[in-house]
Design a binder for these strands. Structure first.
Length: 712
DNA sequence: AGAGTGGGCCTTTTT
DNA sequence: GGCCCACTCT
């Protein structure tokens, strides 16, 4: 090895970088430089002469994948061993890598290379239609809904336990219905094959099928990917773990990095045992540990250690900080969600004026809708932010409508796309759409479909709808498969009339479609474009890779995993919200929620503020208690601003909530200065709501441009 | 068979 | 406070 990394890394990390060939597992605590270690290991491999494109990096979320690839490019871009243009490690989520490979080998598993990818909504729709096919009464309440059916199928696939065991594990009460459940699931699978469409699970399952049944291809891919590195290994499920095993071979050069305390995806069949039993899959695996935390000040780690110590099912460990002491995390109680938003916004603006860069500030929450009040408040104040969570750009109804049109151009058999497009027309409902799909899909291509004798077989209202759609399809044919031209064809079709008739904000929606067209111009092939938008919503790819957004971040805790900020706000820490009430009923649910809380706390480097409102949710009159995680934590972990300011979490119980004087118990200092729900809009004649709305249009529009188009 | 309207229901997390 | 579903009318 010619480059010395010992200046940049500690001894624990260096050992991983210097690990030669063969499997190894790295058990790494939060903030111990996990990603850094992976990034440097990749650089070191390239330094040793390993061809970059024979390195495969697998991660769990898009966020983590792009973060890691950015850092790798920044690092190897600086090294004298700059790879040739076009030579870059392969990196991405399991799903996106599976997609890339299956595009080349689709025919080996009974698919065409132009297969479409169904997102969860498409999958549910298709499942619903499969259930109808096999005669299940969808109006009855006794049968699992399409969403629950999808959950069964998905869990069975990802945990590799099959459908029946999944039903038993997730909802034993549906076991008596298993015969019908299986019939519907089989019909669903058949429909996907007929439609040349894969759902998210198929991407992994078909990839697995390819590797396990097709020995020559397996050997080819094993030879191609000489080095495999997997981040967040604690979140892999059985199927993903099996994929790693097949791709690497028994003596493969696999580096698996993870932390059992941060396993937060068990709802997706993630299993901590995968990392703990890694040496069983790879008997020769070396084991390394990273235990020094470089990220957070000791006060934050005190809280983190205190939190996680309450979990029973874990490998006890204690994070040790190397940083000097600073201040303890603060806890704030607000009378309402609006006042909590106010408080957080105040503090954010204070940090900004103290010179903390916006990109070093994040607000985290358990569920996407918890950030609503804060979003409005930040918009009102003109603080720009990057929002992560909630409805994604490519999941918005009108964007999906436009994409469904493009799917027809790529794959005429795509049933879900046909049904979506057909039902947009006046005079075409569920039943007619089913019949028309049967007629259209057999034509074999869009060019033939527009010639199909549809009018002869339907009533005049339906015929009018079809004529309009046919006009749109014909102009799409003139786009000759160019993604951007196809989007424009949809915009110029009667679809915009539909938007204008249907929505008050049609102009905004058309603007979204314009942006979609601009973005589509980056692609030559429709299937590539569609796969990317389905698998990765952010798509802020920039040529330099390091132009990250300089904005305050609002994010769910799940999406924040692997990231870090100078200042972190953890909001809406209410009983029932975090830990999530429903998660508490699941097996191991409380411990998983606690790990999630631990992940949230350990994102912060220097400042951590935890807060919750006394009222929240749709019933603003119902009082909410603090999260049990606040109640159970050692009060000495928190900063006290005044002596009487220490929240008496320990003394709070849900049972006493009904009759106790809350403001005196734990809301005293804020309860008195609560204005009414309405606020005055800085002297403007607009009503507060109007003021916020007009502002929202501006900020939202601006945000969309930057966050999904990036700097292209 | 489609479209429109009133009532009941929640709200996890991601690919 | 909003969404989805079931029911009813055309």
């Amino acid at each position: 090895m010619s480059t010395d990394f010992s200046q940049e890394l500690n001894a624990e990390q260096l050992a991983v970088i210097r690990h030669g060939d063969g499997p190894c597992v790295v058990l790494a605590g939060a903030g111990s430089g996990k990603t850094r270690t992976i990034v440097y290991r990749v650089a070191s491999l390239i330094d040793r002469g390993v061809a970059p494109e024979s390195i495969l990096l697998l991660t769990f979320t898009n966020k983590a994948a792009s973060e890691m690839m950015d850092r790798i490019h920044a690092l190897i871009g600086d090294s004298p061993f700059l790879p040739q243009k076009g030579q870059s490690p392969w990196g991405g989520t399991f799903h996106s890598i599976a997609n890339r490979i299956l595009r080349s080998f689709a025919t080996h598993v009974g698919y065409q290379p132009n297969f479409t990818i169904l997102d969860e909504e498409d999958s549910r729709d298709l499942m619903k239609s499969a259930m109808r096919d096999v005669g299940i009464d969808l109006t009855g309440k006794r049968f699992p809904s399409p969403a629950v059916m999808r959950q069964f199928a998905s869990y069975g696939t990802n945990a590799m336990i099959g459908l029946e065991a999944a039903v038993q594990k997730l909802h034993p009460k549906f076991e008596p219905l298993y015969v019908d459940i299986a019939r519907a699931a089989n019909r669903y699978a058949a429909k996907k094959r007929e439609a040349n469409a894969m759902d998210f699970d198929d991407l992994l399952a078909k990839f697995h099928e390819l590797l396990s049944t097709d020995a020559p291809t397996r050997q080819l891919l094993q030879a191609k990917f000489r080095y495999i590195l997997v981040d967040e290994y604690q979140d892999t499920n059985a199927l993903q773990s099996a994929l790693v095993g097949l791709l690497a071979g028994p003596d493969g050069n696999v580096t698996a990095v993870g932390d059992d305390a941060q396993s937060i995806y068990s709802f997706r069949a993630a299993d901590v045992r995968n990392i703990l039993d890694f040496p069983k899959l790879f008997p020769k695996a070396a084991i390394y540990r990273l235990e020094t935390n470089y990220r957070s000040v000791p006060e934050i780690l005190d809280l983190a250690n205190d939190v996680i110590s309450r979990n029973v099912r874990q490998f006890p460990k204690e994070l040790k900080s190397v940083l000097p002491r600073h201040v303890r995390p603060a806890v704030k109680i607000a009378p309402s969600a609006n006042r909590e938003a106010d408080l957080v916004a105040d503090r954010i603006q204070q940090l900004l004026s103290d010179g903390v860069p916006p990109r070093e500030i994040a607000v985290l929450f358990r569920a996407a809708h918890h950030s609503q009040a804060l979003e409005f408040e930040l918009m009102r104040r003109g603080v720009e932010f990057d929002y992560r969570g909630g409805v994604r750009f490519f999941e918005r109804a009108h964007v999906k409508d436009a994409l469904a049109h493009l799917r027809l151009a790529a794959n005429i058999h795509d049933e879900a796309a046909w049904l979506r497009v057909l039902r947009l027309q006046q005079g075409i409902g569920e039943a007619t759409a089913d019949r028309m799909f049967a007629l259209l899909s057999v034509t074999g291509s869009l060019a033939h479909a527009v010639l199909a004798p549809v009018e002869e077989r339907c009533g005049s209202r339906t015929a009018r709808g079809w004529k309009e759609l046919r006009g749109a399809l014909e102009s799409m044919l003139r786009a000759k498969g160019d993604p951007a031209a196809l989007v424009r064809a949809v915009i110029d079709s009667s679809y915009s009339d539909y938007l204008e008739a249907e929505y008050t904000d049609a102009a905004d929606r058309l603007e979204d479609l314009e942006q979609l067209a601009v973005f589509a111009a980056n692609y030559k092939e429709v299937p590539d474009f569609l796969a990317d938008v389905t698998l990765d919503d952010r798509l802020h790819r920039s040529p330099n890779g390091d132009q990250r957004l300089s904005r305050v971040v609002l994010s769910t805790v799940h999406q924040a995993k692997g990231l870090e900020w100078e200042a972190v706000f953890l909001i809406h820490l209410n009983d029932g919200a975090f830990p999530n009430r429903r998660a508490m009923f699941e097996d191991g649910g409380l411990e998983e929620e606690r790990r999630l809380f631990y992940v949230a706390v350990t994102r912060a480097k220097r400042h951590l503020m935890l807060s919750y409102p006394l009222t929240a949710g749709y019933d603003a009159s119902a009082l909410q208690g603090p999260s049990i995680f606040l109640q159970e934590a050692d009060p000495n972990c928190f900063e006290r601003e005044r002596d009487d300011d220490v929240p008496a979490f320990g003394g709070f119980s849900r049972r006493s909530a009904g009759g106790s004087p809350f403001a005196d118990d734990w809301g005293g200092d804020f309860a008195s200065d609560e204005p009414t729900v309405e606020r005055s809009a800085d002297g403007e004649p607009l009503s507060p709501l109007e003021a916020v709305k007009s502002r929202m249009g501006k900020v939202r529009g601006d945000w969309k441009k930057k966050s999904f188009l990036g700097d292209v």
